[in-house]
C-alpha cells in the first residue's frame, strides 16, 4: 500500500512566503495606492447610482449589490493579496470554503424561514374562523 518515493511533493510548499521578497517597496506601495483609489471610486459610485437617472429605478439595488461585490474583490486582491499563484492555494481554498459556508447558511436560512408558514392555514381562512 505504501508509496515509497524519495521525491518530495513539489506543489506542497508553505504558502505566503514568496511574494514578499519579490516586490520592491515602490511596487508594494503602488499596489496599495491603486487599491485605495479603486475602493474610493467604487464607494463614490455607489452613492452616485442612488440618485441617478442613468439606471432604471428598480435596478438600483442590483447595481449596489454588484458594486459591493466588486468592492470585496478589490479588497481581496489589493489589500489581502489573494492571487491565483500556486503559493496562494491555501488562501484561495479558505476563501472558497468561507464563501460556500456563508452562502449555505444564509441561503438556507432564508429558504427555511420563508417556508415556515407553509403548513399554516391561509390567513383569510383563519380570519373567517375567528368570526
Amino acid at each position: 500500500m505504501s508509496h515509497e518515493t524519495n521525491a518530495r511533493d513539489p506543489g506542497d510548499v508553505g504558502p505566503g512566503f514568496m511574494d514578499a521578497a519579490e516586490l520592491t517597496a515602490r511596487e508594494g506601495i503602488a499596489r496599495y495606492v491603486i487599491g485605495f483609489v479603486l475602493a474610493c471610486a467604487l464607494t463614490a459610485a455607489s452613492f452616485y447610482v442612488l440618485n441617478t437617472s442613468l439606471i432604471w429605478g428598480p435596478g438600483i439595488p442590483v447595481a449596489l449589490v454588484v458594486l459591493a461585490i466588486a468592492q470585496m474583490g478589490v479588497h481581496l486582491v489589493f489589500f489581502l493579496h489573494i492571487t491565483t499563484a500556486p503559493d496562494n492555494t491555501n488562501n484561495v481554498l479558505a476563501l472558497a470554503f468561507g464563501v460556500l459556508i456563508v452562502a449555505l447558511v444564509i441561503g438556507g436560512s432564508l429558504w427555511i424561514m420563508d417556508h415556515l408558514n407553509e403548513n399554516m392555514m391561509p390567513m383569510h381562512q383563519m380570519m373567517q374562523m375567528q368570526r
Binding site: L100, I101, L104, V105, G108, W111, I112, H115, L116, N117, E118, N119, M120
Partner: peptide
C-alpha cells in the same frame, strides 16, 4: 465535512416548513 453544512433542518422537520424544504 462539506455535507454536514447541508443537513441542519433535520433537527426541526416539525417546525412547519413545507414538503420541498
Amino acid at each position: 465535512c462539506l455535507v454536514s453544512y447541508m443537513v441542519w433542518l433535520h433537527h426541526f422537520f416539525t417546525m412547519g416548513a413545507g414538503g420541498n424544504v
